[in-house]
Amino acid sequence: MRTLIRPALSLFVLLTVMTGFIYPLVVTGIAQAVFSHEANGSLIGDGTVGSELIGQPFDDPKYFWGRPSATSPVPYNAGASSGSNLGPSNPALAEALRARVEAIRSVHGESLHNIPVDLVTASGSGLDPHVSPVGALYQIDRIANNRHLPRTRVRELVESHIEGRTFGFLGEPRVNILRLNFALDGLEPNE
């Protein structure tokens, strides 16, 4: 069995070189050459105002709000992703959901519509950049009032930011909240 030691050690070293150095470096090289925007985190603008794939926390009534985030110590901490991991029978989950429903209702009033479920449940990553189209449309009255904008303009803006399912069937329709809020800042009031 001693004859196995050399193949074991030397094959391990050589496969490490191939799969641990050459492979990731080749992928990095191709990625940086062909898809440098995506490979570096899909950063917006000069790279200092955010990533189009990473959500940001919003609580100002003038902005669209995204999903609750369970990262610590602050929400949307993109250095330490985390979900809430609260189980379905956990009283803490019931409490959190009730508090969020309450908070959303107190700001938006008793709407005819149900509260969109994604606005009151924490995302898996804590960094979800999207809400559902219903989740964004639910907020347009609040935005229009706070920004003194006509309701139809806000609605149009949201509708122009809805991304459909990929190829018409994959995934779910969604709205990127950071992009939407950037576009919102670009609208002039009472134009």
């Binding site: 940086q32 490979a39 570096n40 794939l53 609580d59 809020n181």
Partner: peptide, 28 residues
């Protein structure tokens, strides 16, 4: 190799640079 490149095209990161720092649109 094929899958990794396809994933990068969708936005999966592949860089040896350290983390990026960006400013928040709505400070928290």
């Amino acid at each position: 190799l094929v899958l990794a490149i396809a994933l990068v095209s969708q936005g999966v990161v592949q860089t040896l640079d350290p983390q990026a720092t960006v400013s928040l649109l709505d400070p928290w």
